[in-house]
Amino acid sequence: MQMKWLGYRRNSNNIFSNQKMKQNKFFLPVFLFLQFLIIFGAFGLGYVFANRNPLSIGNSSAVDLPILNETYQILQQSGLYEVAPDMKLEYGMIRGMVQAYGDPYTAHIEPVQNELQSDQLAGSYGGIGAMIEQRDDGFFYLIPYPDSPASKEGIAEHDRLLTIDGVSITNFSDVSAIATAIRGEVGTRVSISVLKSPDYVDETTYRIKREEVPLPSLLAYQDDQHPEIGIITLHIIADSSAEEIEKAITELQEKGADRFVIDLRNNGGGLLDAGIELAELFLTKNQIIIAQQAKGEEEKITKTTRNGAFNDLPIILVVNENTASAAEIFAGA
């Protein structure tokens, strides 16, 4: 019994060993082939990732930005989170580039802010005529201008904004994004849902027709204690600023003002042509307003073409360290 058992055990081992040898002979080339596929595949994927969406600036190739590209590829291949869309990455890189440039007066303006600023520089926009206010509670509230499309349709002061064209207000990042969504082409309509103040219980939806809404670039008034002094605070140098300031001075003169203070503090500028037009109102003919010289070009001098309507008006200009661009040119002229 023992001999048979030992013999069976020995034979069993031999059979197992023989089968293993046969299997090894069969699997060895397969194993080597799989290894080849893995190595080749890894090389191929590395090549694909290394050449996927190469970053470049202007006419520069990706090779010119090796550290930036390496960081980008690491984020794509090994980052814990999904890489942001290309446009968002580009804006992030642009912000960093402009900041590293080190000029406080050079800035990149993204599309939403650019649209709002363009409206402000134009002096008007297509909209419903309401200011948007975000309070400490995190909600957004509407404050309609008098006689605006919003007030005519029934929007009341401090109605709480819920949706714009059916899109929840929570989908918008900030006040600028909300304002851009509400604005649009004159004559079109926008659907606004609000909770009515002061109880914020009743939800009401309005379909408001957009109209051209003026955006004044200045504030004009007489000094309380010295009504002979007219004060004009100019917030921005917009396309309509020259016309606005001419109208404001004329109206203040009719009320008794005969000398003026033009406040340009914290005015970051605006349109160069509008600044030149403003300066012409207060200068005589053939005076230099600005001399410009771009890199590699001849100097360009801009002079007044006529006597300004207020060239003999007593005025004081007030500026500070934040007066810049077209406002600074206006003040300097």
Rank of each mutant, 00 (worst) to 15 (best):
W5T: 12
K22E: 07
N24V: 09
K25S: 03
G46S: 12
S61R: 03
L65K: 08
N69V: 13
T71P: 01
T71A: 06
I74M: 09
Q77A: 15
E82K: 15
E90A: 14
E90N: 07
Y105I: 04
E110C: 04
E110N: 06
Q113D: 15
D119P: 03
D119F: 09
A122Q: 12
M131A: 11
E133P: 01
E133M: 04
G138P: 05
G138R: 15
G138T: 13
F139H: 12
P146C: 06
P146M: 03
I155F: 01
T163A: 04
G166Y: 06
S168Q: 11
D174S: 07
A177V: 03
R189Q: 10
V190H: 07
S191M: 08
S197G: 05
T204Y: 09
P216R: 02
S217Y: 06
S217D: 00
L218Y: 02
Q225R: 05
Q225W: 03
H226P: 01
P227S: 14
I231S: 01
L234K: 05
S241P: 04
I249G: 00
E251T: 09
G270Q: 06
L272V: 14
A274Y: 01
G275T: 06
L283M: 15
K285M: 15
A291Q: 10
K295L: 13
T302R: 10
T304P: 05
D312G: 07
E321D: 14
A324E: 09
I329D: 04
A331R: 08
A331E: 00
